[in-house]
Design a binder for these strands. Structure first.
Length: 643
DNA sequence: AAAAAAT
């Protein structure tokens, strides 16, 4: 049954393939797979329980859905439904918080009760993840690598389970690995692996087939993969030292607009991509975080759209001719802030199309006619479906953070959207595609193979991590010290961005900091869009100096002068590390990244850093240690003293 | 686990 009545009764929808209905259902996305319950609605609607507590953190494991063991109906025990907190409850809350914080962070890391596992004697640790099976992966030979290497690219140095690493000593090159097919399959392997699996939440037997397949894939998403590198033409900064934006082919209005934005001369990635984009080529661009990628595609996109309409009039209700897709609403907004002034300088209009806000304004803008649409996939598909957005005239489509947009869950909507672009262009041509990311690699292969024609691939020479202005540190702490260490890390003058793995923990840490007298705000997908915007603005405007965010803020978001990034939870993927770290050290400023881990995660962290090609000292620390003072900037580091 | 559309 379609989740959306509109689909059932309404117009035909090629856009919504029923096979994906489950994955894209409202329920799955907004209630973690559970049916909506009364208390969900309350927290969604209200946010009334104080700014810092909007209730999501109170969910307990076990109350997943009626199908699951341990499910507690909302009115279990005849208790009255949740209501507003009384004063006495609120008073008790503060006291309870400290305790709960600690307990909760303990639960988080071992949500399935480590004791269970130990009793079974499997000795498997929760840090180990099942690995991808070869035969489950799409095989993609050939592709677009210039050297024509057609090997299976997706497993290069993938994170492997401990038993294998133990025997081989660290990850190694793909070439040294035995063929996967020669080894026993996961299900046939002895107890180790199976023990691990059975120690996972007990629900397997109750899942229907679709759910099970999805959970397998979801776990595989946790595997950190180094994809094969894209062969790219490297541009040297020295090669483009005295090239100007007009030399690259941009018109004077646009050059002027760029100048007003502070972009006097092109950065290397811009010098590389702009001419090719103006030539109409498909382009892949890789440039370090903060290296000016938005202008690298935004400026030539505007120029190109302008040229394509030369002589023509801008009619009312014209269809958009360019589309820029981003993975988060904040990023879409930010791209618009860069592209809009460029577009306006030549009389073109942009509009943002993203979810979480009323459609009316967006639809109104589309009706009047816009030239460039900037947005996120969900709402764009929604409006296409409603016939309020027509992409058939789009002649340039951009994927920002393209590797992320090519990940599971994003790729399908993105592909459906791209298929809608440029279908109305004359001469049988299709839309030009531009893919950009700081970590662009062959993860985008599926998109490239379907949509790009002989793409030009660019990167900037010498952009390794050693040349970066970011200092990386790892603190090895005891789990019980985590809250305290975090508290003292963020109690500082500069702007600090704290990353957590989950929304609930982001919310909890925000509360913890607030309770400790450190003004802090949260940014994550459980907040409504107004609040997300407001909280981010509180950081950019300087109202607060601490932002606690999930990976919604990991990519693309630019905030000036974040000088410390704290990873309260270590990332699972090296790319995530790079993007999170890239929120600091922007435009050559100094920045510092500190990652908190516990002892047993040390090895895994070393592996991840190696994949990211980052060197970082590990320090064992406990509350009060000088190293924490140094990282927070309250005390000079050795390096700073000798400098 | 997070993100991305609203019923």
């Amino acid at each position: 049954m379609p989740k959306n009545g509109r689909l059932k009764g309404g117009r035909p929808s090629r856009n919504f393939d029923p096979r994906y209905a489950r994955k894209t259902s409202f329920r799955d996305r907004h209630a973690g797979g559970r049916p909506i319950r009364d208390d969900d609605r309350r927290t969604d609607a209200g946010e009334r329980r104080s700014a810092s507590s909007d209730g999501r953190a109170d969910r307990r494991p076990g109350s997943i859905s009626p199908k699951h063991r341990g499910y507690r109906p909302p009115d279990a025990g005849g208790a009255a439904p949740k209501r507003r907190w009384s004063d006495s409850e609120r008073a008790g809350r503060d006291e309870a918080r400290a305790i709960r914080n600690r307990a909760e962070s303990g639960r988080r890391e071992a949500p399935h009760r480590r004791g269970d596992r130990d009793e079974r004697g499997h000795g498997r640790r929760f840090e180990e993840r099942p690995e991808r099976r070869f035969d489950e992966r799409p095989r993609r030979d050939g592709g677009f690598g210039r050297d024509g290497r057609g090997r299976d690219d997706r497993s290069d140095r993938s994170h492997r389970s401990r038993d294998e690493r133990g025997t081989r000593g660290g990850y190694d090159r793909r070439d040294e690995r035995p063929r996967r097919d020669d080894r026993p399959r996961r299900d046939d392997r002895p107890g180790f692996e199976r023990g691990h699996r059975s120690a996972r939440p007990v629900r397997h037997d109750r899942f229907d087939a679709a759910n099970r397949a999805e959970s397998v894939r979801a776990r595989e998403e946790h595997v950190d993969i180094v994809h094969e590198r894209l062969e790219a033409e490297a541009v040297r900064a020295s090669d483009v030292a005295d090239v100007s934006f007009s030399d690259l082919g941009l018109g004077s209005n646009i050059v002027e607009a760029l100048k007003n934005m502070g972009a006097e001369t092109p950065f290397p990635i811009q010098a590389a991509t702009i001419p090719s984009i103006l030539q109409g080529r498909d382009v892949l661009g890789r440039g370090r975080t903060g290296s000016g990628k938005t202008i690298a595609f935004g400026a030539p996109l505007v120029e190109s759209i302008l040229q394509s309409q030369r002589g023509g009039r801008r009619e009312f209700g014209r269809r958009p001719r360019a589309l820029i897709l981003a993975p988060t609403r904040e990023l879409a907004l930010q791209i618009d802030r860069t592209v809009q002034p460029i577009a306006r300088s030549v009389g073109l209009f942009t509009t943002q199309i993203y979810g979480g806000v009323p459609q009316a304004r967006q639809v109104g803008a589309l009706k009047k006619g816009v030239d460039i649409v900037i947005g996120t996939p969900g709402r764009i598909e929604d409006l296409i479906e409603q016939r309020k957005l027509d992409l058939s005239d789009v002649r340039i489509a951009v994927l920002d953070e393209a590797d992320h947009m090519a990940e599971l869950g994003f790729a399908e909507p993105v592909q459906r959207i791209l298929r809608r672009t440029g279908t109305g262009l004359s001469g049988g041509t299709t839309s030009q595609k531009l893919l950009f990311s700081a970590t662009l690699d062959r993860e985008v292969a599926a998109i490239v193979d379907e949509f790009l024609v002989d793409p030009a691939v660019y990167e900037v020479a010498g952009e390794d991590q050693d040349s970066s202005s970011i200092e990386h540190r790892v603190l090895v702490i005891e789990h019980r010290d985590k809250a305290e260490v975090l508290g003292s890390l963020v109690d500082r003058e500069g702007r600090t961005l704290v990353f957590t793995r989950t929304r609930a923990y982001a919310e909890m840490l925000t509360e913890q900091f607030e309770d400790a007298g450190i003004p802090a705000v949260a940014l994550h997908g459980d907040l409504n869009q107004a609040k997300r915007t407001r909280n981010l603005h509180k950081l950019t405007s300087g109202k607060v100096r601490v932002l606690v965010a999930t990976d919604v803020a990991a990519r693309g978001i630019h905030v000036d002068d974040i000088d410390l990034v704290v990873q309260a939870d270590a990332p699972d993927e090296y790319k995530t590390y790079l993007h999170r770290a890239g929120r600091t050290g922007r435009a050559g400023h100094a920045g510092r990244v500190v990652t908190l881990i516990t002892r047993h995660r040390r090895r895994r962290m070393e592996d991840l850093l190696a994949r990211a090609q980052i060197h970082a000292p590990f320090d064992v620390a406990e509350p009060g240690d000088d190293v924490i003072e140094e990282i927070a900037g309250r005390m000079p580091t050795d390096a700073e003293l000798t400098a």
